[in-house]
Design a protein around this nucleic acid. Structure first.
Length: 121
DNA sequence: TACATGACACCTA
DNA sequence: ATAGGTGCCATGT
């Protein structure tokens, strides 16, 4: 696996995450699937930790809108990262209780046609 | 080369 | 709801 290929995968992931709208969340697996990388949820976490300055292509990457498939924040409760993510989510009206978000209410339901328009792969 | 380690997901208890 | 086992694969040692 060449470095270029890896970087391309990261970019697909970043681009997909940028499509998650304000006030909504997506799971790592969901992002992986939409990014054309089914079964690669763990790669999404890696990619999010590697966004240069939290920005890609002049747009911020809302990493905090990505949580696990159970609706939980994946950082350890009480950690700085955990608190930061909780705050950022609550700042956009996403309810976080016990480190968990109700996916029924807040999970992003992507519009396929809109997505095809936005994603370049 | 081998092994450990993840911002995970899925299935079974 | 929680816990353990397995699959996954890029990274780091």
């Amino acid at each position: 696996m060449s470095a270029e290929n890896v970087n391309q995968k990261y970019q697909q992931i970043w681009q997909t995450v940028q499509c998650i709208p304000f006030g909504k969340v997506a799971s790592y697996g969901q992002v992986a699937d939409l990014a054309g990388l089914p079964g690669r949820a763990r790669l999404v976490g890696k990619a999010l930790g590697k966004v240069p300055n939290g920005v890609w292509q002049g747009q911020s990457v809302p990493w905090f809108r990505v949580i696990n498939s159970q609706g939980k924040i994946s950082f350890a409760q009480g950690s700085d990262a955990f608190e930061k993510q909780r705050k950022l989510l609550q700042d956009e009206q996403v309810v976080v209780l016990h480190g968990r978000v109700k996916l029924k209410e807040f999970q992003w339901q992507p519009d396929i046609t809109e997505l095809l328009h936005k994603l370049s792969y």
